[in-house]
């Protein structure tokens, strides 16, 4: 097991290098260091000297990938790529263009993101499974039909509409929760109710419909028929057999997103003024702060790879037939 994990971790290294190369290429093709300097130095009275100074200070005055002028190994290390991308592997994230420490920023912003994403994930999973189980239980009836119609309709509506509509009705017209903002500790609950509801409703359509097919598939299997033939009540069949067995693909399927919950949600966070990593990323994209965007891409990829590993591990936990080879 341990050996497997180590092997998977080693396998992740070339992928991370690839990711770094891709993002580095993308961002530096878009924005030369000069552009970044001008962007950060502001609107009024910028001079070429100031731009040179800015670049020199942040190490953008070096060549991109290959420093022919430097001696020995420094040909590789005295470059922007090495300074800005390779250091990420050592979790040295450097500073944002506004000179704030990125690692520190991430460690403080992670919690609000998690406080929003985790409830959305857990409540969403519970609601989706319940809804899907209900539809599967009442399969073929009018309830099932309406359930599917509701699901398809819900998944045909853009997320933006949920947010706009939810804020308008619940926060503005009915004044039930604060319209935006965030506070630490228990106070956060008041701010999170609305975004969590919106997140859950927004994910309900696709999720419940998928799980319904999973349940139906499970119900078509022989052992379920046998159980029914034995005269077990439908309720017992559903909960004891179908739910239990269908949860395996459901849970192994969602494991992959668990690490990525730390990243938060781009849109919801900016609409509700939650100071998490999602709104951090959006801010960085809009301010063209590529130091931050690069770090977020890196972290996002690491978390995704972590998710893939967790998925593999969870498969072996629920199904002993799968072996690490």
């Amino acid at each position: 097991m341990l050996a497997y994990i180590v092997r998977r971790a080693l396998y992740a290294i070339p992928i991370l290098i690839g990711i770094n190369l891709v993002t580095f290429a993308l961002f530096f093709l878009v924005n030369t260091p000069d552009d970044m300097a001008r962007m950060q130095l502001g609107v009024k009275r910028e001079t070429p000297e100031a731009i040179e100074k800015w670049k020199a200070q942040r190490g953008y005055d070096r060549p991109l990938l290959w420093n022919a002028a430097a001696p020995g190994v420094k040909k590789l290390t005295e470059t922007i790529f090495f300074a800005k991308s390779v250091r990420l592997f050592a979790l040295d994230f450097g500073r944002a263009e506004d000179n704030r420490d990125i690692a520190r920023e991430i460690s403080t912003r992670m919690w609000p993101s998690l406080a929003l994403a985790l409830p959305v994930f857990l409540v969403g999973l519970a609601v989706n499974v319940t809804f899907a189980l209900g539809m599967a239980f009442f399969r073929g009836s009018a309830l099932d039909l309406w359930g599917v119609i509701v699901c398809v309709t819900l998944m045909s509506i853009s997320t933006l509409f949920y947010i706009i509509g939810g804020q308008y009705l619940i926060a503005k017209l009915w004044r039930l929760v604060p319209i935006s903002g965030y506070a630490g500790g228990l106070d956060a609950v008041r701010f999170l109710i609305l975004p969590v509801i919106i997140g859950v409703v927004g994910g309900l359509g696709a999720g419940a419909r998928l799980y319904r097919t999973l349940f139906l598939e499970e119900m078509g299997k022989d052992y379920v028929r046998t159980a029914r033939a034995k005269g077990l009540a439908e309720r017992v069949v559903m909960f004891r057999h179908v739910l239990k067995n269908a949860m395996i693909p459901i849970l192994t399927g969602v494991v992959v997103v668990i690490p990525s919950l730390f990243l938060g949600s781009l849109i919801t966070e900016s609409f509700f003024g939650i100071p998490g990593l999602g709104s951090y990323t959006i801010d960085a994209i809009q301010a063209q702060d590529f130091a931050v965007v690069r770090v977020m891409v890196f972290i996002g990829s690491v978390l995704y790879i972590l998710g893939l590993m967790l998925t593999d591990i969870s498969y072996t936990l629920v199904d002993p037939r799968v072996r690490f080879d």
């Binding site: 990711i19 965007v293 996002g300 995704y304």
Partner: peptide, 17 residues
């Protein structure tokens, strides 16, 4: 390798860039 690498990058960021 290629598709794991590509799908590991958060899609929105890749698209934005």
């Amino acid at each position: 390798y290629v598709y794991t690498t590509l799908s590991s990058i958060p899609a929105v960021l890749l698209i934005a860039a």
